[in-house]
Simulated scan of single mutants.
Amino acid sequence: MAMSTTPARPMRADARRNRDRLVSEARASFAAHGTDASLEDIARRAGVGIGTLYRHFPNRHALMNAVFQDALTDLLDRSRVLAHAEQPCAALVEWLGAIVAHAGEYRGLAQALMSASADETSALTSCHVPLRQAGERLLSRARTSGSVRADVSIDDLLRLTNAIALATEQAPADPALAGRLLRLALHGLKADPADPRPSSPLGG
């Protein structure tokens, strides 16, 4: 039987307005209360019923995915700029720092991204996959330059950045903590006193 080639029907104007209001209210609620904010409250503030929210976003991760599309675009754009940086390893570290900063803006986002990385059915996978691809390109360039060990994987680095963002959620009074932890993790714990040169950020 031939498959239908009928294009998907465009969203009605009122449905589009409802969706946009839901995303806007979700962004504000996630920023104020974390990504576990009440979906019922988000729907109420958007002026719709919870059923309307679920018609647009079947689960919390689907709503989170819509909320974070702008931030994802910014991170991907930054990765493309950094792909031409003179120092590939420094470019990779800068990009990882940007991910930590983004994940730290919303309580619970780091944990959700960690869960999505292990669950291909999660709606957040559409955020994780392009981030992984962008990071792999930066990491590959740093490996080629000889500044990063060959056994470093982008999956491990993304887990590390999410873990750092998750850890800093517990210390909101110390805004510099995320940067310190990232530098510590990437430089390693043990310095070589016989070598006066600073170690490569990724231990290479």
Rank of each mutant, 00 (worst) to 15 (best):
L22Y: 05
A66P: 07
A62H: 14
D70M: 11
L39S: 13
D155S: 15
P58A: 11
V93I: 08
D195V: 06
R159W: 12
G47R: 00
G135A: 01
A66L: 09
A112R: 05
R45M: 10
E120I: 13
G34S: 08
E136Q: 15
A110V: 06
D41N: 10
R197T: 06
E136Y: 13
S29H: 02
L157Y: 01
T161D: 06
E40H: 12
A32F: 09
T35F: 14
G179L: 10
A66E: 13
E169M: 04
S145M: 12
I99G: 03
P7R: 11
S126D: 11
F68M: 12
G204A: 12
D155L: 15
M64A: 12
I42A: 06
A43D: 06
M3F: 15
A110T: 04
S24I: 04
L63W: 06
E105Y: 00
Y106L: 09
S38V: 13
N162V: 07
T5F: 14
H128S: 01
A26D: 06
A118R: 15
I164L: 01
G97N: 05
H187K: 12
L177G: 10
S140M: 13
R16A: 14
D119M: 08
P7Q: 11
L139M: 14
G47Y: 00
Q133C: 09
A62E: 13
R80C: 00
T144Y: 11
